[in-house]
Design a protein around this nucleic acid. Structure first.
Lengths: 199, 199
DNA sequence: ATTATCTATAGATCTATAGATAATGC
DNA sequence: ATTATCTATAGATCTATAGATAATGC
């Protein structure tokens, strides 16, 4: 029953990868250790030799998911002549809306994440910062003038729009949200002037 | 042990009210029937005389929560000389960020809701539509020209920003998200021109 | 007589642990 | 000899149901 050290490490990676999808699909509380291990072709018993707790796996799976999402943005941007438009088109699309288990973790687990331990929220925070950096790089022209703020608003708008579009049962309304968000994200990115940001 | 018909109805309402808070605090999968009933001072056994299933209660609690949130926006708007600013100030505030069990259900349960049954998603959809109507009414001047789209973008941005601000452990970054969103929501509301919204 | 709520329980599932097994790594 | 994974299980909790109880409503 024992496997090689390399295979054990591969199994561990497989569990993290499976969990990163399964948590997005069912929520942190919506799937148990048995099914998480089964997602990597293993049984429940070996879990605690690999992970300290379910929360520990949740943290590692969240990091994996956020890093995957960040890399996806970079890849899509690098492959297009209009990088920002490529990211917007990918993110605010019906395809991404349907892609629950492989799409953005902030959409799939945003409200769940806010209820999790600090161990789980740290990888989310790191991933949010990484997403902001990409957005700032892709922002045209007048960088500097509030590009931080604008990147934050763009990310918030994108996450909120796909989250809402997934809740809606009315297909027309759902698509409308995605399109409305795309239009306003473009405008925020292009907008040269700066508004006061006090509350 | 039996209570009057009026008291039974009051108990039922109390369960829905308690559940509307408890679900927001713990997620739909994060709290059981025993604690939901205890939230109204009752025991688990009476549950199925009042509700068809946990999902049924989730749907009714979601409706209650969304209607409460809608009413809150109306009330705040009606009480202020600058209604839109009042809603923005309330929603994108640290106070609302901390108010997990009584704040906006779209923030507390957005990603959970996308995984729920149609029975649960319908009240969310109705609540989203009601929020859009309020935003459109509060939008200044040049109504008509894309006010639907702008309301959708404003709501998405507000929901996304508070969701992200709740995940973040870094207080400065969290506040920055709220302020950035407030600035851009104002700009979207004020913006007279219209951008194409194709994807 | 009806019925709202109670206690109690069935059967499934949850996280976590214990001990067996068998292949690796020294 | 060590150890990665397995089967099995403990103890708690989950949703849902059954039957008892006692106050209401006819």
């Amino acid at each position: 029953m024992r496997v090689s050290r390399a295979q054990a490490e591969a199994n561990r990676e497989a569990v993290i990868n499976a969990a990163s999808q399964l948590f997005r699909e069912h929520g942190f509380d919506g799937i148990g250790l048995k099914d998480l291990m089964k997602g990597a072709g293993l049984t429940q018993g070996g879990f605690y030799k690999q992970f300290g707790s379910k929360d520990d796996l949740a943290a590692q799976a969240s990091r994996r998911a956020m890093e995957h999402a960040t890399r996806r943005w970079s890849t899509v941007a690098a492959a297009s002549p209009d990088p920002l438009e490529a990211v917007i088109g990918l993110y605010l699309s019906p395809g991404h809306r349907e892609e629950k288990s492989d799409g953005c973790p902030l959409v799939a687990l945003g409200s769940d994440a806010a209820r999790q331990s600090e161990e789980v929220r740290v990888p989310f925070q790191d991933g949010i910062a990484a997403h902001l950096e990409i957005l700032e790089e892709l922002m045209p022209a007048a960088e500097g003038t509030g590009s931080h703020q604008r990147a934050m608003a763009m990310l918030s708008l994108m996450v909120g729009a796909v989250t809402i579009s997934r809740i809606l049962r009315d297909e027309e309304m759902s698509l409308h949200f995605l399109n409305a968000a795309a239009g306003e994200v473009r405008r925020i990115a292009a907008s040269p002037e700066q508004l006061e940001t006090s509350i």
